[in-house]
Nucleic acid binder design. Structure first.
Lengths: 199, 199
DNA sequence: TTTTATACCACACATATGATTGGAATGTCA
DNA sequence: TGACATTCCAATCATATGTGTGGTATAAAA
């Protein structure tokens, strides 16, 4: 889910390594650690990459400080908060990203996880209120009884998945609304793994 | 859960600085950065602190790597999840800590913030379900309309704070329960700033 | 009393690490 | 074509940084 597309493939790999290093080791890499990971034989090569990444706005580096590589703001790998979901999934359009939720280790932010802001009160009896954020792990299958995110046409909806005989239904947690049968126009895009609300 | 030995006041300050450095700068400090922050004139002094913190289980350090100070999970500054709250607040007894919620930058986990597991359904219409975690910022005052955590005798309870004329009430979000007037037996211990639920 | 932990210092050493300079090959774009 | 970005290399330099040795002083614990 790249935000900006102006990185080369190799630059992406370097950025990814920096990201993994920070998330995995709790420590940004040194220039030589980057070099040895990619088999570069010169630190100058790494410097070229770092200056490119700085110039393109993905990282910041501080002079004369070891490991002083910082991921910039809403960089590549934080979880995007999407205000609405369109049929284009799993490719999230940039305009739909509402902000970024930095959950760090709460969620293992692999690229298949995102957060969705809930609209409407159809899940209110499940404790999911309008404007809550639901954390969604992208998957196209789900168990009955799980809370899922489904796409109906271009609209994303959060519902229980229920099975009756051979048929599946999207069931709201609000008696005001009716269940809807899962047919060809409905696709499951993920499972709700967490709810976060902030006051 | 491993029992950790007590830290001296100065050791706490050093640990706190390491923590702030990681959270604030996204980078653990070097030995000399620690030294200069505290005015230590020898790196040996810092090494003494680090070895003490390692031995007591608060940090890990890797040999021959710069800035390789790692906070051990469930360390001092993660947010404790308390299963119940007793009158002893704001000193949380260790036995009451149910686990640790690592929220990193979601919440600025100063020492006045903790998480409380909700029991009961008295706030169900506010979308706070049994077993949810509420993040609580410790404070003894609150505005009317805010969701607060109050202590009634030895029991912690999550309720709306409402004002009617001169009186304050703890008001549940569930018609099954009755509001309760705030009197001398009730003390406000914090304000709910977030709700987190995991499936 | 002896031992251990705490809390500092001075000084030196080895190396980890970030700059820097200069070059080369390749491809893109105006 | 020429300017420029990308992607590598070699080699060197300066210093940032972790480590080690050996102290002093105080207080608590065994």
């Amino acid at each position: 889910m790249p935000i900006k597309k102006d990185l080369t493939q190799k630059q992406k790999e370097v950025l990814r390594f920096i990201y993994d290093s920070i998330r995995g080791n709790n420590l940004p890499p040194t220039i030589r650690e980057i070099a040895s990971h990619f088999g570069f034989k010169s630190t100058g090569t790494v410097r070229d990459y770092l200056t490119a990444l700085v110039k393109k706005g993905y990282i910041k580096v501080s002079a004369n400080k070891s490991r002083a590589i910082e991921l910039v703001k809403e960089a590549l790998f934080s979880i995007p908060i999407v205000g609405q979901v369109r049929a284009g999934l799993p490719t999230l359009a940039v305009e739909e990203i509402e902000g970024y939720l930095n959950l760090d280790s709460l969620v293992f932010s692999d690229e298949s996880t995102f957060a969705l802001r809930v609209k409407g009160d159809s899940m209110i009896e499940a404790g999911i209120m309008p404007d809550d954020l639901v954390l969604v792990r992208r998957q196209d299958m789900a168990q009955t009884g799980e809370i899922i995110v489904a796409l109906i046409g271009e609209d994303a909806t959060v519902k229980y998945l229920k099975r009756v005989n051979q048929d599946y239904f999207l069931e709201p947690a609000n008696p005001v609304y009716q269940p809807r049968k899962v047919d060809g126009s409905v696709s499951i895009i993920g499972k709700v793994i967490s709810v976060v609300r902030r006051f």
